[in-house]
Amino acid sequence: MAADEDTRLLYAEIKRRRTHRAGFTGLPVPERLLDALVAEASTEGAHLTPVRSEPAVRVLAAITCAAQEVQSQNRLLSLELIRWARSPGSPRTDGVPAEGYPCVPRRTRPHFAQRDYTHGHPWGNDTGQFFSTSTGVVAVLTTKGDSRQDWIATGQALQRVLLHASAHGLSAAFHTQALELSHLREFLRQELCSQEHLQMIMRLGITFDDTEGVRRPVTDMLEEL
């Protein structure tokens, strides 16, 4: 069966899509596009919910910052982050490239903490970051259950959302710090997510950043049985 137009559109974005790690421009995200992203997630059995309540956004931002502060004191996590950060000109085909995050992060309001990939190095990207201080649209991806099947559904839903967003000029920033601390994740499930299990916190917005993504070759990801 031949792929339909929508599938071909998403496929074309696989190599182009990249994670954003800074603020966004002040350009508004069209409501019709947000509705389309919600529908894309629903197709896979997950729920994408734009957070409209300002107090709820502030809570998500504060918990993200708190989780980041706690994790920054964890030596093993810090070492893993250092290993994952690529130096400028590195020939590695994985990790976070130096141009993939701002050299001097600008605070958004409310502020969502970012991973510290620089670790004191003069690395990073300063192109277009100075004026990109908008938080963008905060959204959460949730599922009713929290089984392995739900995790797979989450991954498939996230893929649909990100590729569809990329195809329409929208970028996404992820904030998983609180999800890695079980008690904070449970608090958010009970207080903000209508008892659904929180799988991803993200910000969506428009940016003029034109950095390139990094993808491992398919041969590195497959195992022959």
Score class of each variant (00 low, 15 high):
51 V>K: 04
38 V>Y: 06
115 R>E: 05
86 R>T: 02
171 S>T: 07
48 L>D: 09
140 V>K: 06
155 G>C: 04
79 L>C: 05
68 Q>P: 00
40 E>H: 09
118 T>H: 13
62 A>R: 10
110 P>A: 08
93 T>R: 15
147 S>V: 02
132 S>W: 00
82 I>L: 11
133 T>M: 07
58 R>F: 03
167 A>F: 11
60 L>P: 03
112 F>C: 01
147 S>N: 07
156 Q>H: 14
152 I>N: 04
179 L>A: 09
87 S>C: 01
167 A>K: 14
149 Q>M: 07
145 G>N: 09
140 V>Y: 01
139 A>Q: 00
125 N>Y: 09
88 P>W: 11
178 A>W: 00
107 R>G: 02
49 T>N: 11
57 V>G: 02
50 P>M: 03
89 G>K: 11
174 F>Q: 10
121 H>Y: 12
66 A>I: 12
175 H>N: 08
41 A>R: 02
63 I>C: 07
48 L>R: 10
43 T>M: 12
114 Q>V: 09
45 G>H: 10
67 A>L: 03
90 S>I: 00
162 L>W: 12
166 S>A: 15
121 H>R: 15
80 E>A: 13
119 H>W: 06
173 A>W: 00
124 G>K: 04
115 R>N: 14
147 S>W: 12
90 S>H: 07
176 T>W: 00
135 T>Q: 11
64 T>D: 13
67 A>K: 02
56 A>P: 05
162 L>T: 02
166 S>N: 14
148 R>L: 14
113 A>N: 04
155 G>A: 01
148 R>P: 04
156 Q>R: 14
45 G>Q: 02
94 D>V: 01
149 Q>S: 12
164 H>E: 14
173 A>H: 06
83 R>Y: 05
95 G>M: 13
108 T>A: 03
80 E>N: 10
